[in-house]
Amino acid sequence: MNSRVTNLFSVIAVCLPGVVYISWINAYYWLLEGQKYEAFMQPRLWPLLVFAMLLLIVFVAAFISQFSSKPHAQTGSEVWIRSAILLLPLLFLWSIYGQSLGTHAYLNKTLPFADTAAVPDFLSSRSTTGSVADNELTLLRLLKQPEMFDGQDVMVEGMVYRDPRLPEDTFRLFRFAVICCAADALPLSMRVEGSVLEGLSNDTWVRVAGRFKMKMVAGRQIPSIAASAVRQIPVPPPEKRYLFF
């Protein structure tokens, strides 16, 4: 009985590299289907995922072709641990899909002088994509060309951060802009003043309509919106929550 169990474990251990490759191929396919990868990385990088999937398919082919000639295949604990570590990101992927960076990440990634200072000039040199209707603006576009929209009525979507240092009727509207992947996401934010919904809590998605202006506060130009309406909106699907450079 014991030897049968040992044999079974040995057979499974020999197959584990194949399991790792196939699981990752599956994950890449799942991410590419319906563009779910946009919940984690820049849409323009989709060829990378296809490329990785193709390489893994080649690995599977080689694994199968060499399967019968493996007298010394590793079957010890090392192969189990190694495979488990390689499968760990997939466990996180399926646990985390649906969640997104929120106030915690916003506060962690923001520098006190960076969130109110002028927008870095590389923003103005790059086209952007986002998930808004045609008559709306993204935070990124607004911050890219603030002088163009200064004094104009605008409508923009984002998440709420109730900064305790700000007055009661003011909050920060923020979103993340991704360069390559969510690890490099830069927080973009602006003040929204007036017409704040009661009970508006952190991380709520809202659409803000109002007049955009650059205000001078403590010697710095700070982008802000004098809101005429703030409406809670449904949380966008995970792949539509970030803006992309």
Partner: peptide, 18 residues
């Protein structure tokens, strides 16, 4: 929320780097 930051950062780095 801390888990969201950790998980998304971790998965993003692996997906991009692999």
């Amino acid at each position: 929320p801390q888990f969201s930051t950790l998980g998304i950062t971790f998965v993003s780095i692996v997906l991009e780097a692999f």
